[in-house]
Amino acid sequence: MTKHGAVYFVIGIALILLICCDAADKVEPSAGRRQGETDWSDGLVTYQETWPDKFGIGRHADKSFIAKWDIDVRPDGKGLPDGEGSAKNGAVIYRQKCASCHGANGYEGPEDKLVTDSTGSNTIGNYWPYATTIFDYVRRSMPFNAPGSLTDQEVYDITAYLLYLNGIIKEEYKITATTLPQIEMPAKKRYISDDRRGGPEVR
């Protein structure tokens, strides 16, 4: 009897530990739900208990594969390739590949204005908070009729030219992986994070 008691005790402790040490990534049922209400996560915790520690599904992604796909450029410069862009070279590429949508000076349209004019429309100069976003976006999505076709060199040059057109850099200023993240964009100080939190206040 005492032997069994010990076994039950050990099992009991193990169960309590299992319950208390729920994996941190487990989805908790939403707070505030009343009993009897149904929702998508009903029974999920019980189901999760039947899962193995590791599924081991999929294929390992090696460094060379990741390097090919990892194209994003961050405000701190992470992701910028080697290179040097000049506004002068950028002007030539801009005329060939960008002007037909964004206008000869960057504000005539028909598509988005890139350069600030008297209308007050959002532009790189008055609305974009980070200069690195220009590089990221142009390389990612432009030109519209042939996305992803620009070389890193062309992207550097166009980035320099757009910053120059907006009066943010001088024409001879060279854009590199070091200088681009250092550029303080005029609109940056205007940005705040989402301050809406639900509840009665309208924001």
């Binding site: 961050r74 959002n122 974009w128 980070y130 690195t132 976003t133 990221d136 976006y137 999505s141 940005y191």
Partner: peptide, 12 residues
């Protein structure tokens, strides 16, 4: 990542 990338869609 540790920080947002600040893509065009979340800034401009």
């Amino acid at each position: 990542t540790d920080k947002p990338v600040m893509t065009r869609e979340e800034t401009s």
